[in-house]
């Protein structure tokens, strides 16, 4: 008896489903309606911040420990007016940059020396003399380095080219905090180590005397950092 009941139930179910599907197929055949497709996107994040203290030269420079002890004063070089100064034994980093942001686009970080100028007073007895050494990513550039750097003009060009070469590109979502900031610095050696044979105490003294007489040699150095989206 149970078995017959199950079979009967299954048969009834089968008939019901067949009737239902007949109805459904007719309903599908009459289906006419509208349809819509939609999509949206948000603007990709940029949010890059580059900051720099903008200080390439100083008015005061700290002396060595021995000098401090000898003069009982921290600074071995101090400007007497509003001018910032350079002198034998002074040095400073020219690229103190800090970055923030993680753009959702690929980008390039460019460094560029927008201004590097050495005026006409870098001379002794009418002969050009500039003992300033520029270091870019550990590579030193100075007059007499090689046959390509023989005077101020070629020195300036070599330093500018070296700074441009350290520009780099990054994938989307790379935090700018991980960007390698190239080290660019200048130095006037106290002792002629690198510029042996070119730099000398009498020549350095002559430049100092010219400055005291109001004909100071001047140096201008500006480094710019630009972050640009890559296409």
């Amino acid at each position: 008896m149970k078995k017959n009941t199950m079979m009967r139930l299954a048969s009834v179910l089968l008939i019901c489903v067949l009737l239902t599907t007949s109805t459904i197929s007719g309903t599908f055949a009459k289906y006419v309606t509208d349809g819509s497709g939609e999509d949206y996107a948000r603007v990709a994040k940029w949010g890059v911040t580059v900051t720099s203290d903008g200080v390439t030269f100083d008015k005061n420079y700290e002396g060595t420990d021995a000098t401090k002890a000898a003069i009982s004063h921290d600074n071995s070089v101090e400007s007497s007016d509003e001018w910032k100064v350079v002198a034998p034994g002074t040095t400073k980093n020219a690229t103190e940059f800090s970055f923030e942001g993680a753009p959702e686009v690929a980008y390039k970080v460019d460094f560029e020396i927008t201004n590097l100028a050495l005026n006409e007073n870098w001379s002794v007895d009418g002969i050009e003399y500039c003992p300033i050494i520029f270091t870019v990513e550990g590579e030193k550039y100075y007059i007499g380095k090689d046959t390509t750097i023989t005077d101020k003009a070629t020195l300036i060009k070599a330093v500018k080219d070296a700074v441009v070469a350290v520009s780099d590109s990054y994938k989307p979502n790379t935090p700018l905090s991980s960007v390698d900031v190239p080290s660019v610095s200048w130095e006037w050696e106290f002792e002629a180590d690198t510029l042996a044979g070119y730099q000398s105490d009498p020549k350095d003294t002559a430049l100092g005397n010219k400055a005291a007489a109001g004909a100071a040699a001047t140096i201008e150095l500006s480094v710019k950092c630009t972050v640009t989206q890559l296409d």
Partner: peptide, 17 residues
């Protein structure tokens, strides 16, 4: 080269896309 990529799966638009 991937030049634009979302950091959270959202669809994006940006210059050059």
């Amino acid at each position: 080269t991937i030049t634009v990529h979302s950091n959270d799966g959202d669809r994006l638009i940006a210059p050059g896309t």
